[in-house]
């Protein structure tokens, strides 16, 4: 029993190995943070643009947006990453691991965000549109100043959950050798012959995402919508 505990500590919490490999993990952490921020920025911007565009109800555009959203909700993100990374070079469009991961996850987040926000737009009562239009605001101004702010607020909880789920997917970048936390940690673990770098990697994820999850819980209560 005592021996077992010693072995566990030696394997997973080896101070020497941790010190040796910490810089690599930090490097990976930096990459993870960078991709995550890029994904959140691009994904949410694209999702908002698509949701707003859909409000104009232009037939063919609607069909295209719905198809885009459906496909990216149905495909596993790892499949999207692998298609972009391995299949696009056949079109002479080589992609860096960073681009493939960032672009894939941005598209996935955009699809989910569009769907969530569009549902929010639909949930804003008709009277809000009418009141705004009756004061002379145009369609775009009504959408931008009156409807979207309400739609965005009432959809904060599902959106926060989705943002967390998609950005956690940056770990999938390791499959195409993006040098983020998982890549760094598992190559370090095999080089060191010890899983302590994996522990470090796990800790790095917790350091990044636990604050995000806590922030998410706070946002959920902060924006709980009472009508």
């Amino acid at each position: 029993m005592d021996n077992g505990l010693e072995r566990l500590v030696f394997a997973f919490f080896n101070a020497e190995i941790a010190a040796a490999w910490a810089p690599k993990i930090l490097e990976g952490m930096w990459v993870t943070i960078l991709v995550s921020l890029a994904v959140v920025a691009t994904g949410l911007a694209l999702g908002l643009a698509l949701a707003a565009l859909r409000a104009y109800r232009i037939g063919p555009v609607d069909v295209a947006i719905v198809a885009f959203v459906d496909i990216l909700r149905a495909l596993p993100p790892l499949v999207v990453i692998i298609i972009l990374f391995f299949a696009f070079p056949y079109l002479d469009l080589p992609m860096s691991a960073f681009t493939a991961t960032w672009l894939s996850l941005s598209l996935v987040l955009a699809a989910f965000a569009e769907e969530i926000w569009w549902a929010g737009i639909l949930a804003v009562p008709r009277g809000q549109w009418e009141a705004a239009r009756s004061t002379g605001l145009g369609f775009g101004a009504t959408l931008g100043y009156v409807v979207l702010p309400q739609a965005v607020r009432m959809t904060v909880p599902p959106l926060v959950n989705r943002v967390i789920a998609v950005t956690k997917g940056t770990a999938l970048g390791s499959v195409v050798a993006l040098s983020e936390i998982v890549s760094q940690a598992s190559s370090a673990a095999s080089l060191a012959g010890n899983p302590t770098p994996l522990t470090l990697g796990a800790a790095a994820y917790l350091a990044i995402f636990v604050p995000v999850v806590v922030l998410g819980r706070w946002l959920e209560t902060r924006f709980a919508w009472k009508r």
């Binding site: 009277g127 809000q128 009418e130 009141a131 705004a132 009156v146 009508r227």
Partner: peptide, 8 residues
């Protein structure tokens, strides 16, 4: 409007 329709 009957239901006010203020922007919440």
């Amino acid at each position: 409007f009957q239901s006010f329709n203020l922007y919440p």
